[in-house]
Design a protein around this nucleic acid. Structure first.
Lengths: 241, 241
DNA sequence: AGCCTTAACTTGTTATGACAAGTGCCTGGA
DNA sequence: TCCAGGCACTTGTCATAACAAGTTAAGGCT
């Protein structure tokens, strides 16, 4: 047959997992056992298991074994991405905390400068936050903030989520332009978010505008695809074409 | 040093790619050359290259070599996901075609039955389409359609996109509930969409309702994350709390 | 000149072997 | 009894080796 051994083995294991033969959280047979049952070398077994891990169906831990990923589906979902993150999660009884990793004045890259309509020599505040849901790392948030806002509200921004801080200061966000795309965990991301190298991550990149189309925030939130999704409702509007 | 060799090598290559030392579309050094320059075995080199491929930075072809992925960023983006897919792409001069892979009456799985508010024994039409943008495979669309609609408009549905057909029949979609998540290419998907095993895919899963909250469609579109993203605009509404 | 065969080079698959490193259990000593 | 050390088992990393299969280009034949 023309399909490689490691593919046929990983597909067979996938079927066993999906049929419930190996329950979520359960341990898969060790590499040694798989070598015996399929009569192949360890390299082939490792490749097959790597496929499963790559597909998010399993997870390995050195010394412990390979486990079927507990939840194959999303644990948290957001309606109206991120603006309502806090209240959305609170409604579901999920505790949202974050760790402030960085807050400093920098000269933002050109893409961000143009988004925020900043001059070439302007500075902006860069904040990096690690978001935790019920204690587990869920997303990394990277936000650029207009310098006057960052300077004025820095203390609060380090302790609270961005949008609530702005709300308290009566700064109303009128519009958000956002793009949702998806990427892979590189070495840094995989350590931050505690996922294996190459796991899929959802990127939510946005620019927030106040009245008069003035951009005040530009950021991206990179979250674990196995724990997160975005939900939205599209409605026909009277003024739509 | 404690970081594995294959990681440090792939990080080094990643920096070279990002700094432009290897231009998009250009060929990376062959495994043989990399073995020599880094003084490691082929296994280590292959692992390092696999990391890059996994991160979507490179792509390999048997016999040809390893190439830096031409476009690291998204080629097509959609505002108001999928409803306006055709006009959205047309506006950008991108030709959208599709190949009808399947159109048949089936008993839908329980999740779909409940979404479409169908009885336990009801049938529905299942359509699978392979969407092509400018000829290249971009997304796989799987749609369940109410039986009466499928029966009546089957011929058109096989030839045109779903929403235009409904529009022609003056069936107005009032609301769409959608979820965007992200997954990996399994063996089947990787052959359909012509991506390597494990590449990230964006899943757009939706239910479309007409007036009176009657669901008539439920489907999912699984698209290549390296070619596709979803863009949206969130606006403050008068009636929003 | 144009076509075909072949050789060289590429990545893909698979085997065997070895050591490192993390985990957990069991056993022996205090 | 309790703790520490060691052993057994696990996955992670890395080397060497061979063949398969796809691509490309050179060279020879028509």
């Amino acid at each position: 047959m023309s399909v490689p051994l490691h593919i046929s083995i990983s597909e067979k294991l996938r079927h066993q997992i999906e049929s419930g033969e190996y329950a979520p959280g359960e341990k898969l047979p060790s590499e040694h056992q798989l070598m015996a049952t399929f009569a192949v070398s360890r390299i082939t077994v490792r490749q097959a298991v790597a496929n499963l891990i790559n597909q998010g169906l399993a997870k390995s831990q050195q010394g412990k074994g390979v486990f079927v990923t507990p939840q194959k589906k999303v644990a948290y979902s957001l309606s109206s991405p991120l603006v309502f993150l806090e209240r959305d999660l609170a409604r579901k009884g999920i505790e949202l905390t974050f760790e402030n990793l960085l807050f400093e004045e920098v000269r933002p890259p050109v893409a961000v400068r143009s988004r925020l309509e900043l001059g070439d020599l302007s500075m902006a505040y860069l904040q990096k936050k690690l978001l935790r849901m019920d204690g587990a790392a869920g997303a990394l948030d990277i936000t650029y903030i207009l310098p006057e806002l960052g300077q004025q509200f820095g203390t609060q921004l380090k302790q609270q989520m961005t949008f609530p801080v702005l709300e308290q200061q009566a700064i109303a966000i009128e519009r958000i332009e956002a793009i949702i795309e998806c990427t892979h965990a590189d070495h840094d991301m995989s350590t931050y978010l505690e996922v294996p190298l190459g796991q899929p991550l959802i990127v939510y990149r946005y620019t927030a505008y106040t009245h008069h189309q003035r951009p005040i925030l530009h950021g991206e939130t990179i979250s674990r695809a196995d724990r997160f999704c975005y939900s939205l409702t599209i409605e026909r509007r009277a003024d739509a074409e």
